[in-house]
Simulated scan of single mutants.
Amino acid sequence: MRLRTILLQALTCTLAALTVAAAPAAVAAPAEQGVIRGGDRLFSSGGGRCSVAFNATDGSRFHGVLPGHCAGTRTRWFADPGLTVPVAEAEVSRFPGSDYALVRYTNPDYSYPSEISVGGRPHRIDRAAQPAIGQRVCQSGPTTGHRCGTVQAVNVSVTYPQGVVHGLFRSSLCLEPGDAGASAFDGGTALGIAVAGSGNCGSGGTTYHQPVAPVLAAHGLRVGH
């Protein structure tokens, strides 16, 4: 029983066994003209590209939630790989310790709905919640597309070269390079942000997610706008 508790509640993994959910070298397509949803990629100078997991608001401004290891060192973000349409500026970065970043949307010609792209169609997100072991979880990623699985563990720690990230949850979902920021959700409930994984979608694997509910709470943000 003690061993099971350790495995499910305080599992520590090293990055050597993981694939960090980085963006691929190939240039990705830009977001739909005039709208950015969860699952859409943003682009920054120097070849930076990360996917927005979820859009959120503080009641007056809109923000995108991204992985910290992917977005933390970038300052200005664009809707297109040619860097001609500025849409956001970096506002918060947490990595290591946690693994998330917040960008503040700045382009009034775009809309930022509380939706994610699932199979090319908008999917409404109404709330955020902490994941529970055994809960169904789905993921929408630019590389792997839409897949569903279960939450396997919570309060997981992952060791990166830069330091340890605490408080992640692990799922049975697979992850491929290019899925940084893939949205993890259950119906209309936002659960987390894909940040790392082991294995692959050909032979199976696991994914590690930054829970999104505590991120929103820490910064006075909400989904469902």
Score class of each variant (00 low, 15 high):
113 P>Y: 11
48 G>H: 13
192 G>W: 00
57 T>P: 01
28 A>H: 07
34 G>R: 10
45 S>Y: 13
72 G>S: 11
130 Q>W: 13
158 V>W: 05
66 L>C: 06
105 Y>L: 02
115 E>M: 12
147 R>W: 04
174 C>N: 07
81 P>Q: 10
2 R>D: 14
207 T>G: 00
83 L>F: 12
106 T>C: 02
68 G>C: 01
92 V>K: 12
179 D>A: 08
131 P>I: 08
92 V>C: 05
84 T>L: 13
123 H>P: 01
81 P>M: 06
138 C>L: 01
169 F>G: 03
30 P>N: 09
118 V>K: 10
50 C>R: 07
157 S>K: 14
3 L>D: 13
151 V>C: 00
86 P>K: 07
91 E>S: 14
170 R>F: 07
152 Q>M: 14
7 L>I: 14
92 V>H: 02
1 M>P: 09
27 V>A: 13
175 L>E: 04
101 A>R: 10
186 D>H: 08
170 R>P: 00
198 S>N: 14
172 S>N: 02
169 F>W: 08
60 S>T: 15
28 A>Y: 10
81 P>G: 04
150 T>V: 12
163 G>F: 06
66 L>D: 06
126 D>H: 12
207 T>E: 03
190 A>E: 00
31 A>G: 02
24 P>T: 14
128 A>L: 01
212 V>H: 03
28 A>D: 12
108 P>M: 10
214 P>V: 05
20 V>I: 12
124 R>H: 13
65 V>Y: 03
28 A>R: 15
144 T>P: 02
70 C>I: 06
89 E>T: 13
116 I>V: 14
154 V>H: 01
200 N>G: 12
75 T>D: 10
21 A>G: 04
158 V>F: 09
174 C>M: 05
162 Q>F: 00
67 P>S: 04
224 G>K: 03
13 C>W: 15
97 G>H: 10
181 G>C: 09
118 V>L: 06
80 D>A: 08
153 A>S: 14
61 R>F: 11
149 G>E: 04
219 H>D: 01
168 L>S: 02
140 S>F: 04
100 Y>T: 03
155 N>Q: 14
150 T>K: 04
43 F>S: 04
133 I>K: 12
4 R>T: 12
72 G>D: 05
15 L>V: 14
35 V>M: 07
18 L>D: 08
110 Y>N: 06
179 D>P: 07
155 N>C: 05
13 C>I: 15
47 G>V: 10
53 A>K: 11
7 L>W: 13
51 S>F: 10
212 V>M: 08
87 V>P: 03
9 Q>F: 15
17 A>V: 09
13 C>L: 15
30 P>G: 13
177 P>Y: 11
167 G>Y: 06
118 V>N: 03
207 T>D: 00
207 T>F: 01
224 G>L: 09
65 V>D: 00
77 W>Y: 13
92 V>E: 09
71 A>R: 07
185 F>T: 00
205 G>F: 03
209 H>K: 02
168 L>E: 03
134 G>N: 08
179 D>E: 07
53 A>F: 06
154 V>N: 05
88 A>I: 01
143 T>K: 11
34 G>I: 06
24 P>M: 07
54 F>C: 00
109 D>Q: 15
44 S>P: 00
224 G>F: 11
176 E>N: 08
96 P>M: 11
95 F>T: 01
12 T>D: 06
168 L>W: 01
39 G>L: 04
197 G>S: 01
